[in-house]
Simulated assay, not measured.
Amino acid sequence: MSFQHSTDMWSDFPELAAGVLHVEGIHRGVSVEAHITRFEALARVRLAGGAEGDLPEIQAWRRAFSRMGLKPTQYRSASEALLRRFRKEGTLPKIHPLIDLCNAASLAYAVPVAVFDLARVAGDLKVRPAFGDEIYTTFSGNVELPEPQEVIFVDASGRAHARRWTNRQSGYSAVRDETARVLIVAEALHAGAEADVRRLVDELDTAIRAIWSVTPRTAILTGSAPRFDF
């Protein structure tokens, strides 16, 4: 299996920084509260200076969504949606220890972090413009077809695992109680994104090693080295 962004994506968004972690041995029977508390404290400090829309990481995604022909306040990046909810409610719902950890890291860095259950991904996973005939399954089980040229995460079977790039993941490959093997993807577009994504990947790597006693494989992808094999 492999993960990569298409040549078109690197051409259209040369400022992209992407970090990936492949992790085996995930399970629910762990505590991540200490890590979540630290990440949430960092997010509160950042939000104390203004709303999430003022953060350069979020502004960069809003510009990207506009370039893709999407209204940024209608379709938000996952990190903006999480920060918006966190600012209003002061907390995020608990879903699964790994998702809770990645959501908290996303809050702290204002960077979208996607997590895919690899048991539900067929072959290679790629970020590319849609053809329009890919299958996307919502969390409620409804089936949708992405718009042609919409940026999606898609596997070798033509199943879309995320729509509008970092806007919405699919329920089909969401982490479940039985999930054991995952791919984590963090993407950013702001000035200094590569350094921030490296730090985010390093922090998740350290946390996952400590919590699950496993050894993730990690990589930082670039236009000249866009593919991660695992």
Rank of each mutant, 00 (worst) to 15 (best):
R44K: 12
I36W: 00
L47R: 08
K88A: 14
K88Y: 00
F39R: 05
Y75A: 12
E40A: 03
R28Q: 12
F39P: 00
A81Q: 13
L16S: 11
H96W: 02
R38N: 09
E57H: 04
E33S: 09
E40K: 01
V32L: 10
L21Q: 06
A43M: 07
L70A: 11
F65P: 02
G19T: 04
L83D: 00
S11C: 08
I95R: 04
W61T: 04
A64D: 03
Q74C: 15
F39T: 00
E33P: 00
A43G: 06
A43D: 05
A60K: 13
G90K: 04
E15R: 12
L55S: 01
R62H: 15
S79P: 13
W10I: 06
R38H: 11
K71W: 09
E52T: 03
V30W: 07
L82P: 00
H96I: 03
M68N: 15
W61M: 13
G90M: 03
P56N: 12
R62K: 15
L42V: 07
A34R: 13
A17I: 05
F65A: 15
E24L: 05
Y75H: 10
I95C: 00
R76I: 08
A78W: 10
T37K: 07
K94D: 02
L98M: 06
H35Q: 09
L42P: 01
R85W: 05
G25P: 07
P14C: 04
P56I: 14
A48K: 14
P97M: 03
L42K: 07
S66W: 08
A64F: 09
I26H: 06
R67Y: 10
L47K: 03
R28L: 12
R87C: 01
A78F: 10
I26Q: 05
E52D: 10
R46Q: 11
L82M: 11
P56K: 14
H27Q: 08
R28Y: 04
K71I: 12
G49L: 11
G90D: 05
L47W: 01
E33C: 03
W61I: 03
L98D: 03
T73H: 11
L98V: 07
R84A: 00
V20Q: 05
I26M: 09
R67M: 15
A48M: 12
M68T: 14
V32A: 11
F39W: 06
D54I: 00
A60V: 11
L16R: 14
E40D: 07
A41F: 01
A34F: 02
Q59E: 14
A34N: 11
F65V: 07
V30H: 03
V20P: 08
E33L: 10
L47A: 05
P56T: 10
T37V: 05
R85S: 09
I36H: 01
E89Q: 11
R62E: 15
G53K: 13
I36G: 01
A48W: 07
F86Y: 13
G69N: 13
A17E: 02
R85M: 07
L55K: 04
A81P: 00
A81F: 06
R85D: 13
G50Y: 01
